[in-house]
């Protein structure tokens, strides 16, 4: 465990908590893509099937929190606060993300076993899972500040993981090309948003796209 990994994980955890609190406190999931949240629930489920293989208390606890929080979020959006769900703007075709991720996982993986293919699928799936949310923001042309903070924390997490991978490559001589390439793709998808976040939201303005 190095500082980049730890801050990355905490940023990831913070993002999930921000989103849950936002929905719970405002009793609304307006501006949130339910489709992205379903994709994240799929990501954690397929990745953490290795939960019985104990690594550390930290590892087990985080996995359980990520899985539980993702299902709680999906429940809040599609059941409890369903009336506030903005489905007219959540129109990204997720099959265009799920199917290619799965096919790619079948073709490029570390080991052709059920667990490994599902783990690889989760890595590919995660890298593009935010697209329905970013699509929704671009469609409505704006995002609430709290939604922007959520996206910033979530995007920062994989960027910090890239630093962690560079660190591990230099200190432990270890690297995972699948995670690295997918992690870079994932981070690049947030670049446009990062720019808007720094130039607008941090200066107290609302994230609004030019008309």
């Amino acid at each position: 465990m190095n500082i980049f990994r730890l801050v990355g994980d905490l940023s990831h955890l913070l993002a999930i908590i921000i989103l849950l609190l936002k929905i719970w406190k405002t009793r609304s999931c307006a501006g949130i893509s339910g489709k992205s949240q379903i994709l994240f629930a799929i990501v954690y489920t397929s990745r953490y099937l290795d939960l019985p293989n104990f690594v550390s208390m930290y590892n087990t606890l985080m996995k359980i929190v990520f899985i539980a929080a993702s299902y709680a979020t999906v429940y809040l959006i599609y059941m409890k606060f369903k009336a506030t769900y903005d489905h007219n703007h959540d129109t990204f075709r997720v099959e265009f993300l799920v199917l290619p991720s799965f096919v790619l996982a079948l073709l490029i993986n570390h080991d052709f076993t059920v667990l490994e293919v599902l783990w690889t699928f989760s890595i590919y799936m995660e890298s593009v899972a935010i697209l329905p949310q970013l699509f929704m923001v671009s469609k409505t042309g704006e995002a609430e500040s709290i939604t922007s903070h959520y996206l910033f924390a979530l995007g920062s997490y994989r960027a910090l993981y890239i630093l962690n991978w560079i660190y591990r490559y230099t200190t432990e001589d270890h690297y995972d090309l699948i995670a690295i390439v997918a992690g870079i793709v994932q981070t690049v998808l947030y670049c446009d948003f990062f720019y808007l976040y720094i130039t607008k939201v941090l200066k107290g303005k609302k994230l609004q796209l030019p008309a």
Binding site: N59, H110, H174, A179
Partner: peptide, 10 residues
């Protein structure tokens, strides 16, 4: 260089 999955990562 060792390539492969980092089992401790999330």
């Amino acid at each position: 260089h060792r390539s492969g999955k980092s089992k401790d990562e999330l």
